[in-house]
Computed example of a mutant assay.
Amino acid sequence: MNSRTPMARLSRRNRLLVLVAAVLLLSGLATAATLHAAGRAAEKDRAQAGGPPVRSGTVTLDAPGRSVFRNMAWGPHRDEITSVSTADLGGPRTASGIRCLRFHTAAGTGICLQAVHGRLRDTYRAAVLDSHLRELRHYDLAGVPTRARVSPDGRSVAWTVFVSGDSYAGTAFSTRTSVLDTRTWTLDRDLEAYRFFLDDRLHRASDLNVWGVTFADANRFYATVATGGKTYLVGGDREARTLHALHTNVECPSLSPDGTRIAYKKRVQGASSDAPWRLYVLDLRTLRESATAERRNVDDQAVWRDGHTLVYSLPGDYGSDLWTVPADGSGKPALALKAALAPAFTGRS
């Protein structure tokens, strides 16, 4: 005989209904909270991916009045070589589809240092591009890309990689710098093989490092040599295979369009060992150096936008922004391009 009364059975059913309703309510609240959090995250991602609009299109390296650079904004075009009007740097960006970690161009020749993603590890290569960004040749790299330059006539290209270490700030790094003739495809794989002259005497050292080439023409260039705990600006000659020290405490030189001045990063006394550099300009005729108005740490090889203005990268929300400052020490720094790295200016010799 069933001892439960109809009222008891009803109470039990009500309790079950209340329990089910509570579970459904809590489940609904959890789902709503998850969707709200996802919405907030998506909104944050959209905000972080904001900035100048970027669209796919055709990018060439011989169009006048264009700035080309590595686009750093998050989204489908991150790391692509991108073009924008030099007259309207904040305008719409045209992305090429070609990804580069470092890039430079002159006279319709481009050099693109790329990552090649593998199953076990990434490798790197240097791709020489024509004016339509078509690959002409490529070369395997011995390390992580850090600097790239093309001579004003497009007939020589250079690149530097970290063979060990990943920063110029300390001393525990090793670089390898190569120079390539784009007419004969002759490759000088390591500029450390050149004869280095210090105080006009041949100097041999096991700790020699060379990086940061900037070209005067297809044969003559400037670069940084480090040895004995010091850095030197050197003048290089590809045909003679020589490097001659010209001035101390110069890193990552950049030659002005008229060939008379070098912009570079200089280690300054009293600065942090993690942020030791300031942006300077050296007059090659007098060897007189002067500081620019940029007082922040600049770990970059600056580019001359014209004969008066330097362009360089500083850390930004997307990894890197481009800034400008007058080369003569006047004025003040100005933000030129957000989410950008490795600039060059096309359509000029």
Rank of each mutant, 00 (worst) to 15 (best):
V59N: 06
V116P: 00
G165I: 14
A172N: 13
I98M: 11
E289W: 13
W74A: 03
Q48M: 11
N249T: 15
L24K: 04
R70A: 08
A22S: 08
T324D: 00
R155Q: 12
Y232N: 02
A193E: 12
I111L: 09
W211N: 01
A126T: 11
S27E: 03
R261A: 11
H77Y: 15
A41T: 15
D300F: 15
L35N: 08
L279W: 14
L284T: 05
R305P: 07
N2T: 10
S3R: 12
S67N: 02
L16Q: 13
W159E: 00
T177P: 06
R78N: 12
A87L: 06
N219Y: 04
Y312T: 13
D283F: 12
G28V: 09
S56T: 09
P92Q: 05
C112F: 05
G212M: 01
L133Y: 03
T5R: 12
R13V: 15
L133S: 06
P6T: 12
A327T: 12
T242P: 01
H247V: 05
V144R: 11
R288W: 10
A142V: 02
T34M: 08
L335C: 07
G228F: 12
N219E: 11
V250W: 10
T286V: 07
A30H: 08
G39H: 14
A193R: 14
R238Q: 09
V210A: 01
G331Y: 11
S313E: 13
A73I: 04
F215L: 00
Q269G: 09
S164F: 04
R93W: 07
A33N: 11
R241T: 10
R40Q: 10
G229N: 06
G228H: 09
R348S: 07
I111G: 01
H203T: 15
R137V: 00
H203S: 13
G28W: 11
S164A: 08
D317A: 15
R119Q: 12
V84K: 02
N71V: 06
R278W: 12
Y194T: 03
T224V: 07
F197H: 13
L233I: 02
M1H: 10
S151K: 04
A63K: 10
A193C: 04
S272G: 14
A205S: 15
W211R: 01
N14D: 05
V161R: 02
S156Q: 01
G108S: 05
H308K: 14
L180C: 00
K230L: 13
R55G: 07
E43H: 13
R15A: 14
T186V: 05
L25K: 04
N71L: 08
D190H: 04
N297Q: 13
S273V: 15
V161K: 02
N14L: 15
R176F: 02
H203C: 12
M1N: 04
S85W: 03
M72G: 00
V23K: 00
H36F: 12
L136W: 09
W185F: 08
D122P: 00
V157A: 10
G110N: 08
S85Y: 06
G259F: 03
T224W: 14
L284N: 03
R4G: 00
V54E: 04
S254E: 06
A226T: 15
S67F: 03
M1C: 04
A142N: 10
G91L: 05
W159G: 00
F197P: 02
R13Q: 13
S164L: 03
A22H: 04
